[in-house]
């Protein structure tokens, strides 16, 4: 009888203890997990005037919080692709000599359609739509 009482109390103590520990750990883990900041919803972006953009050059646009690379491939011809390398998230750059997109981090190469051609990138770069509206370049998210 005495032993059972002790067992019972130990069990209560154990459950209480576990509850206590959980009630300490849970807030700490939640605290460490960063709150989701409201992502500014951007669906299209004006990227300057067509006449100000030299051919065979590129620039990185701030598409919300994501970088997008805009390349002028020919007269009035544009390509816009996500600038985050699909390999390990570095920001890619346009190679003027070979007309390819290159990531300096691990030598990943993409063609102008964003297809991963060589190196470690596992996926192509996401494509964005580019339109010229009265000389103004407008980049729009597809889909």
């Amino acid at each position: 009888m005495k032993l059972d009482r002790r067992k019972f109390l130990n069990m209560l103590l154990g459950i209480g203890g576990i509850g206590g520990i959980v009630s300490i750990i849970y807030p700490i883990v939640s605290f460490l997990n960063p709150p989701k900041s409201a992502e500014p919803k951007v669906n299209s972006l004006k990227a300057g005037l067509n006449s100000d953009f030299p051919e065979n050059t590129s620039k990185i646009l701030k598409f919300g919080r994501k970088p997008v690379i805009l390349i002028k491939t020919g007269k009035d011809q544009y390509k816009a692709l996500s600038a985050s390398c699909t390999h390990l998230d570095c920001i890619v750059q346009y190679k003027q000599d070979t007309k390819q997109i290159w990531c300096a981090c691990h030598n990943g190469l993409y063609d102008l359609n964003g297809r991963n051609v060589s190196g470690p990138p596992p996926k192509p770069l996401e494509e964005y739509d580019v339109k010229l509206i009265k000389e103004e370049i407008v980049v729009t998210k597809l889909g």
């Binding site: 990185i60 390398c85 570095c90 920001i91 890619v92 750059q93 990531c103 300096a104 981090c105």
Partner: peptide, 10 residues
């Protein structure tokens, strides 16, 4: 700069 290409020789 979070919006600049990764530099060469990284």
């Amino acid at each position: 700069d979070a919006f600049a290409p990764a530099p060469k020789g990284i």
